[in-house]
């Protein structure tokens, strides 16, 4: 069978960690919360000193939104649902060509949802300043490209240890590649990388709150 489901899964990992975060960051940088002033608050006629409306977001001087509002969360949730629906035909074709069954597709979708959660959280929660955006892009690139590179280096230069096996499972690209094989057991084996991706998303949300 063709590795169609495997390449689809790996491609979507790259989308979740490298491309989609850039889309989200660009959208966040452009978005203005409802009611927030476009101009600096020094133009308020009564000379009020408060320049931060309660509960509203402020904009950095370069226009980077410094907070994620509820509308953004709901909109991106709808968008991810739309991705899942729009990707359905692709998964159907890939599963047919790759000799995969329904449980294979569901397993890949389960793993991918963890990766998308991590990508979403990294992009939307950490990228609240130009420095934060650099951190977000760097984190996505490390997850998507750095971990596979580390796996390759471990495999090439330290094959005796089990480190390369851990790196293979930890790197989303290689993990999804292995999980998208046809006719495996329903639950991912191992399951802990999915938990790691979800934990990464939760950690990014927590760090975002702390900031």
């Amino acid at each position: 069978p063709l590795p169609a489901l495997r390449t689809l899964a790996a491609g979507l990992v790259l989308h979740a960690l490298l491309i989609y975060p850039l889309v989200l960051m660009r959208r966040l940088a452009r978005s203005r919360p409802a009611g927030a002033p476009e101009n600096p608050p020094s133009q308020t006629p009564d000379g009020a000193t408060t320049n931060v409306p309660d509960g509203a977001t402020t904009n950095a001087p370069d226009g980077v939104a410094t907070s994620v509002h509820g509308g953004f969360v709901a909109a991106t949730a709808c968008e991810l649902l739309a991705f899942a629906i729009a990707g359905g035909p692709f998964f159907l074709v890939a599963a047919y060509l790759g000799d995969a069954v329904v449980s294979d597709v569901l397993r890949v979708l389960l793993c991918l949802s963890g990766v998308y959660a991590a990508g979403w959280a990294i992009a939307s929660r950490l990228a609240r300043s130009p420095g934060g955006r650099s951190v977000s892009v760097l984190a996505g690139a490390l997850l998507a490209l750095g971990l596979p590179a580390a796996y390759y280096l471990a495999l090439e230069f330290a094959p005796a240890g089990a480190a390369h096996r851990v790196l293979y499972d930890l790197a989303p690209v290689t993990f999804l590649w292995s999980q998208a094989a046809s006719r495996l057991a329903f639950w991912p084996q191992p399951l802990w990388p999915v938990a790691v991706y979800v934990a990464l998303a939760a950690a990014a949300v927590l760090v975002g709150w702390a900031m």
Binding site: L2, P3, R6, A10, G11, L12, Y20, V23, A86, F90
Partner: peptide, 21 residues
């Protein structure tokens, strides 16, 4: 914008997958 990129990634990765065949 985001949706078009998603479809492009799907199409490209699927094309890579069926390339050998």
């Amino acid at each position: 914008g985001g949706g078009v990129l998603f479809l492009l990634v799907c199409l490209a990765s699927l094309a890579v997958g069926i390339w050998p065949g």
